[in-house]
């Protein structure tokens, strides 16, 4: 009897240990399909088929190989944060799953009337100035500071209303704790003034492929020339 008990204990213990060491590897790169005539610009499809406009067969997109990055994360990388986030499509991710692309991040909330629409416009202005050939190397991320109200569904409709759809746009809902921590990494300040209304700093942050902060654009409607050039630099490295 005693031996069995010991054995059970040992097994439980070793499973615990091995559970800690488990590493989850994730496939990031998938093949996308594009219309060879680019009827819809650089719209991509997840599955093969035909273009709805010119009816030609979709071709696998000729995107560059995703650069292979080492697994090492540097000390200042935001991928050190282990908080979980929900995307507008209802997926649960950690920030490190965004690794490999340049990240342009901003914190907003969807019920905001004053600054957020302008911040969203600033994001679109940046996006408009980045050449389309980099579309697969950049991710525009909008993080909600109101994790209670901004559900994935709400974020999804916000993305539609603001013409921020497609795979280069990502919306994130975190936990109150995770959002506070993330804001601290970005040095973004915010306070809930009343339900559905927050005071917050208007900062757009640029991270390189390995999650290191390289530039912050502060204020609304400011000249984004420097931000653009910093983003372009991240593609070279």
């Amino acid at each position: 009897m005693k031996t069995i008990k010991h054995l059970l204990f040992f097994i439980a213990f070793s499973t615990l240990l091995s559970a800690c060491n488990k590493k989850t590897t994730k496939e990031i790169s998938k093949t996308d399909y594009q219309c060879p005539m680019e009827c819809e610009g650089d719209k991509v499809y997840k599955e093969p088929g035909s273009c709805p406009i010119c009816k030609m067969d979709l071709k696998p997109s000729t995107k560059k190989e995703v650069k292979i990055l080492s697994d090492e994360i540097s000390e200042t990388s935001i991928f050190n944060l282990t908080s979980s986030w929900n995307t507008e499509d209802g997926e649960t991710i950690q920030l490190k799953e965004l690794k490999g692309k340049t990240l342009v991040m901003v914190m907003i909330y969807t019920t905001c009337k004053a600054a957020c629409p302008r911040l969203a416009a600033d994001m679109r202005n940046i996006e408009a100035k980045i050449p389309a050939k980099y579309n697969n190397e950049i991710n525009y991320v909008l993080v909600s500071i109101d994790p209670v109200y901004d559900t994935p569904e709400r974020l999804k409709s916000f993305s539609k209303e603001n013409f921020m759809e497609g795979k280069k746009w990502t919306f994130l809902q975190g936990t109150e704790d995770g959002v506070r921590e993330f804001a601290n990494v970005l040095s973004v300040k915010y306070k809930q003034i009343s339900p559905l209304d927050f005071s917050h700093s208007n900062i757009i942050s640029v991270f390189n492929r390995i999650g290191e902060l390289i530039h912050q654009q502060e204020g609304l409607g400011v000249d984004n020339k420097e931000t653009i050039s910093k983003i372009l630099e991240t593609f070279q490295n």
Binding site: C112, A114, A115, C116, K189, K191, I193, D197, F198, S199, H200, S201, N202, I203, E218, G219, L220, G221, V222
Partner: peptide, 12 residues
């Protein structure tokens, strides 16, 4: 209280 940097800053 830079109204460009903070949304709703007048409320604080």
């Amino acid at each position: 209280t830079d109204s460009d940097l903070f949304c709703g800053s007048a409320a604080v």
